[in-house]
Amino acid sequence: MHDLRLHALAHGRTGDKGNRLNISLIAYAPEIYPLLVQAVTEDVVAARFAHRKPTSVRRYELPKLYALNFVLDDVLDGGVTQALNLDSHGKTLSYHLLGMSIAVPDELMAFARVRRNDA
């Protein structure tokens, strides 16, 4: 097993609507998708964003796209019209998810893009 940041395995983008944030998490390779389903659960994502106090975290599975879509409620301090955050849209937060480490089995390491930043 190797601890790798999600950034080595997947990519994603955030979108905002009011105080609600969605983050897609898209496997670079279909072989990685089951690992994401198993490791990146609603609870894990809620814990990763605990400091933003989400009132709910929903995960939608899109196996044909090798993607997960997370919807986090009430994490944007009121959103773009109210927050004092520099990034009131939460646009930077996809990379907070991608910065999270998970355990990757040896047989999946071939699908990882290991760079200095992610190892």
Binding site: G15, R20, Y66, A67
Partner: peptide
């Protein structure tokens, strides 16, 4: 894929 899921719940 990134854009398909952009601002989708």
């Amino acid at each position: 894929t990134e854009q398909l899921l952009y601002e989708v719940h």
